[in-house]
């Protein structure tokens, strides 16, 4: 079975995001970029499936700007076998919407015929939480979102999902699309020898046009602003003072 893992290049998890003063977006100049953390978990799970003998090939795919090559090299260094880069934008500020990404991924799935697509549940930049579900819809496949456990058994898979009330376990027909949550696994770090080896692994370059997908955004971005700031608070000196302040504020 082949595993397809979509990965996205995003602002690093630890970077404090700055909104541009002219309201046109978020400042990406000289900002550290990394693989979306949820996608790292997806890559890790794919590699574990291969190590467990349940998968024979892990293919990472990224859709975006040319620089997403680096993100794919990270996936290859972690243990993916090969990578596909689909260039869909020249400007790093242009985010390709989940619907367009899903349409391109659907074409990649047609070509590659994976038995499972493992994706992050959301990217930490646009926070849409949509690509996996949309891909599943376009393919008419089953979906298992927000997975914290995955157990593939022949033509079905058992997936435990993190939901509002607790945990839900479902059984889905293969092939399927699983979007992964935080507690599925802890991704490995790529070792230096594996980073070197990754440079020699195959990385195919394509464009959105090769797949005949129009990536024109459906959502026009009117403006991007800083959220309203909270007024500064005070530091109290004791529990007694805290209780007094809370009573004054009518909070207790």
């Amino acid at each position: 079975m082949k595993v397809l893992v979509p990965v996205k290049r995003v602002i690093d998890y630890n970077v404090k995001v700055r909104v541009k003063a002219d309201g046109s977006g978020v400042d990406l100049a000289n900002v550290k970029m990394s693989m979306n953390p949820f996608d790292e978990i997806a890559v890790e799970e794919a590699i574990r499936l291969k190590e467990a003998g349940k998968a024979d090939e892990v293919v990472a795919v990224s859709i975006g700007v040319k620089q997403a090559q680096e993100t794919l090299r990270t996936a290859l260094a972690m243990g993916a076998d090969r990578a596909i880069l689909v260039i869909a934008a020249d400007d790093v500020h242009q985010d390709i919407e989940p619907l367009a990404v899903a349409k391109i991924l659907a074409k990649v799935v047609e070509e590659e015929q994976p038995g499972i697509v493992l994706a992050g549940k959301q990217s930490i930049d646009n926070d849409m939480n949509a690509t996996g579900q949309m891909l599943s819809a376009l393919l008419g496949w089953s979906q298992g979102t927000f997975a914290s456990e995955l157990d593939i058994d022949g033509d079905s898979a058992k997936i435990t999902r993190e939901v509002d009330g607790g945990l839900q376990t479902i059984s889905v027909k293969m092939p399927t699309i699983v979007t992964v949550d935080l507690r599925l696994n802890e991704p490995r770090y790529a070792s230096l020898p594996n980073i070197m080896k990754a440079k020699k692994k195959p990385l195919d370059e394509k464009t959105a046009a090769d797949y005949g997908v129009d990536v024109t955004p459906r959502l026009e971005i009117v403006k991007t602003e800083e959220p309203a700031a909270r007024a500064a608070g005070i530091i109290v000196g004791s529990v007694d003072e805290l209780v007094e302040k809370l009573k004054e504020a009518g909070a207790v």
Partner: peptide, 23 residues
Amino acid sequence: ATTDAKNVMPRVAALLDSMIISD
């Protein structure tokens, strides 16, 4: 925007060829 709706609504949007507006 509960976990149930986050599971279902992007699927609905794709079937209607619409871009979801999440959250």
